[in-house]
Each structure stands twice: as structure tokens, then as C-alpha cells.
Simulated assay, not measured.
Amino acid sequence: MSLLSLTVQWIDDNFSLRHATLQAKPFRGSHTSKAIADAFDGMLQTWCIPKTSVHVVLRDNARNMIKGMNDAGLPSLPCAAHTLQLVVHEGLLSQRSVADALAIGRKIVGHFKHSPLAYSCLEDIQLEIGQPAKRLQQDVQTRWNSTFYMIQSLIEQKRALGVFVSEHELPDNLTAHQWALLEKVVTVLGPFEELTRKVSSSEAMAADVIPAVTVLQRFLSRETDDDHGIKTMKGTLAAAVRRRFSDVEEQPLYSIATLLDPRYKNLFFSNTNTAANAKEMLMRELLRSSGEEENHDLHEPPARKPRRDQASSSLDSIFDEIADEQAPVSLNRAQCVLCVVS
């Protein structure tokens, strides 16, 4: 059964971020754009939420969802996590050797998933060699990052699987070259997994998207000795990021949010032109909200290095590197911003 849910986020009187799931209803029949628009209209009416109070709807990238939001007259943006995983899907399919290794990995995981006896034997081996008993993870196309977790679980159990295959049959087995290939794939997909978790968090903000894309592009553009065997995949990932996020800096919601976030300011835009355009978007929004007619030449306070509010990650050095490069760049900016929340 298909379900359609309505989850809301808002800022309360204490300026704290709040969220709640208001409704989850069966979604029967064809998932046409009209049916989606009608369903959203019905849920908003049920909760007496006027469309003027809807700042933005986050949706997936399906055409029926895009058109459905347009038909309903609701502003919408694609889910950044879903877009990241579409990029990963493209990359994994682009290199035959990687796709073949993944197919074998799925067969191995599937064998243990469907055979309690085989899993029991693997569990005994894990305990004998001093590893915790742990199941292999099957990837599912609709579950974001699941392929990364499947490869990771296979690599963690490589030693136990080697013992198992010496005593039992498997439907297929990975060669030494394929094991090495999967280890490289995990290294490249690690930042995608990290950023997907970050933008999927209940604490995530629109301001996180542009910096995440900029850092990801920097990471993928670097050539390393470990690229041998996965260059096609890495190149496809880089091209897919550029294409699927090509207009992210032109979206006022993303650009203004990034500019106003003290962690990011104008440091993570791809160039000075897009940063200047973001400033213009912000000033137009300020004038619209305040009703003023004139722009004022207000100057930006001294740039500060973005603070770190999370544990160190594999991408922190790239965030710091970009921030240090862009810190001397100055943009005129409003010193005081009035935020109006519907």
C-alpha cells in the first residue's frame, strides 16, 4: 500500500526548530500529478494550513511530484539526499568492473539472507576468529546509502567469508582484484554517505546544500593513486553532481540561506558572480519584506572561519581549505536581517 505523509517543520516563538508528522494517509489509484495535488490540498485543508503559510515543500525528483506541486500552487525543491543518491546510482552503473563486483556481492549477501544454516555457520566462524556476530547487509534500491553499507559489511566480514568459502559452497565469490575494487568504491562513496546523513537529519538546513555540493566537487576533482580501476566511476560521479546540482546556486532559498548562515556566508559559492547574485536576491527580499525602496551600502563584518559543531569527518579538511581560500573575498552585505516566519 502506498502512503502519502505530511511532515512539517517550523520555528516557534522561542526561535527553536520544531517538526511533526501531521498526517499519513493511504494513496490509492494512479499517482498522477493531479491526484498528488488534490491529496496535498486535502491535507492542508484538514489542518487549516493556508498555502500562503507554506514556505517550501521538499519532494523527490519524480516528474509527477514536480508537476503535482506546480498544479497545487506550492513552492517546492527537490530533496538533496535523493539527488545525491541518483548521482551515486549513475556512478555505480557507469563502470562495468564495479557493477560486476557489486552483482557478486549481492549474490553472496542473498545466499546468507535466504539460508539460516549458512548464516549460522558464518556466525560460528565470526566468533571463532574473534569478530562480533554480525549480519551482512543487503542493498535496496529505494534505501539511500544501502549499497555503501552492503559493501562496507562485506569488507568487514572479508576474513570470515574467506574461512567460510574454504569449507562451504557459495553461489559466487569475489576475486582479489574485486575485493580491492570494492575497497576503493567505499572510499569514494564515503563522502556521499556522510553528506546524505547530514542533509537528511532533522537538524539539516537549506544552508547546508550549496557548501556540501562545493566540497563534494572538490573531493571528486582530486586525482589520487587509488583512482586506478575506478576512474570512470569517479568521473561519472563528478559529472552527475555538476549536472544534477547545476542550478542550486540560482535557487533563492538555497542561496539566501547559505549567505545568511554564519558558518558559510559567501565562502562556498562556486564563483564571485553567483555569490554576488545571492546578495542581490537577499537585498530584494529585504526590500520586499520591509517595503523600503532604496538599497543601502552596508558592509560585511570581518569574515570568520566557519565553526565546527560536529565531530571531525573526512570532509572537514576540504571545508576548511575552501573557507581559507575564500576568506579574503569581501561582499557588501546587510548587517541586520529581519526574518519573517509564516
Rank of each mutant, 00 (worst) to 15 (best):
E203P: 05
H177I: 13
P211L: 02
E193R: 10
L189V: 02
V209Q: 10
E193K: 05
K184E: 07
M233R: 01
E223G: 04
A278Q: 10
D208N: 10
T258Y: 04
I230F: 00
R263V: 11
S221V: 00
P211H: 00
E194L: 15
A257S: 11
D227H: 01
S200D: 03
G229C: 09
A239Y: 04
R218I: 10
I256E: 08
I210V: 12
L220A: 02
V248I: 15
S246P: 02
A207G: 12
V213W: 08
F192S: 14
L181D: 00
T224N: 04
L287T: 07
L286F: 08
E285K: 14
D226W: 02
L298M: 08
F269D: 12
R222P: 02
S270V: 07
T274H: 12
D225I: 03
E223K: 10
K198I: 06
V188P: 01
A240L: 09
N273L: 14
P191I: 11
K279G: 15
V215A: 01
G235N: 04
N173C: 13
L182T: 00
L287I: 12
R218D: 12
A239D: 05
D297V: 04
Q251H: 14
S221A: 06
I210D: 10
L174Y: 03
K265L: 13
R197F: 02
I210Q: 13
E250H: 13
S202R: 09
H296S: 13
